[in-house]
């Protein structure tokens, strides 16, 4: 592999990885606060993609309106999922909310399969197919938009988490759920907010992926969700910078794996990496070590 090709693959990988990162953030924030693997998160991402598509097809929206529409619709969706399927189970045995999440995921997939049919729908060309050359390396306008949007969203997330009152409450709840509630933090509100925040990012991710790969379909959330979840774990679940790092790490690893001829093992690359990281550093790249309490 020449270094030009390598650089090219890095760009492809980082673009792919930043979409994983957008989904991974939702997993990681929710896990950080209520230790729930939210298996319905991939479906929120899928619905976001469909909302963006509808905005463009029916309302002739441009890409930014489509992104906004997807984010706005996904927030109440995720908040309602939490209200209906997870909140009644907050004190239930560990596995109950996970099963509930899988139930929600099956429900949403089937719903969209019935409404939209299983065939992928193409995204209308909202972005011109322009190519830019930086030396020998090629980058498309779509890739630039994805990278910029993802960066802006993640920066915004950092600001919310680090600089606002509700962000502070989120961090406190994540640190210690019971103490936070004793300190007068309305944890229910914080949890709803976290779900909404994660959903907005996933919805935006759905639209970006829809445009990048030009296809939107009801089962798109399954593999993407699972891989994004891997990214969250690789980065250290519960850690926001970890999810970003994990997503990009995974995207690049996958693209290089394919380029190196392990294309048929592509899905295995993500999961193999996952196991490797877990064995060497069980809490992920940037996760805090867990104390074994006696």
């Amino acid at each position: 592999m020449t270094w030009q090709m390598m650089l090219q693959q890095v760009i492809n990988g980082v673009t792919l990885g930043s979409t994983y990162a957008l989904i991974a953030l939702g997993y990681t924030m929710v896990y950080g606060i209520i230790q729930l693997i939210n298996f319905a998160h991939g479906e929120v991402y899928m619905i976001g993609a469909f909302v963006g598509l509808t905005a463009v097809l029916v309302f002739k929206a441009n890409i930014f309106v489509a992104l906004l529409a997807a984010m706005v619709v996904c927030i109440p969706l995720a908040v309602s999922i939490e209200r209906v399927a997870y909140r009644p189970l907050r004190r239930a045995p560990r596995l109950a909310p996970i099963i509930s999440a899988i139930g929600v995921s099956i429900f949403l997939q089937t719903l969209m399969l019935i409404i939209k049919g299983p065939q992928p729908v193409g995204f209308p060309p909202v972005v011109a197919n322009t190519l830019y050359y930086i030396g020998p390396v090629r980058i498309s306008l779509v890739q630039i938009i994805i990278l910029v949007t993802a960066s802006v969203l993640m920066l915004g997330l950092q600001l919310i988490v680090k600089r606002t009152r509700i962000g502070k409450a989120m961090r406190a709840t994540s640190e210690d759920y019971d103490t936070a509630s004793l300190m007068g933090i309305n944890v229910n509100r914080v949890i709803s907010f976290t779900f909404g925040l994660g959903a907005a990012l996933a919805g935006a991710g759905g639209v970006l992926v829809g445009i990048y790969f030009n296809s939107v379909f009801p089962l798109m959330g399954v593999m993407a969700g699972l891989k994004a979840f891997c990214a969250a774990v690789v980065g250290g679940i519960g850690s926001i910078p970890g999810a970003m790092l994990g997503g990009i790490f995974l995207g690049v690893a996958e693209v290089f794996g394919v380029a190196a001829g392990f294309d048929t093992y592509k899905d295995a690359i993500a999961f193999g990496l996952l196991i490797l990281v877990l064995l060497v550093r069980p809490t992920g790249l940037l996760g805090q070590p867990i104390q074994k309490k006696v």
Partner: peptide
């Protein structure tokens, strides 16, 4: 089927 899973858990 999905609804059944959620309901039983709740």
């Amino acid at each position: 089927y999905g609804v059944l899973m959620v309901l039983v858990m709740i």
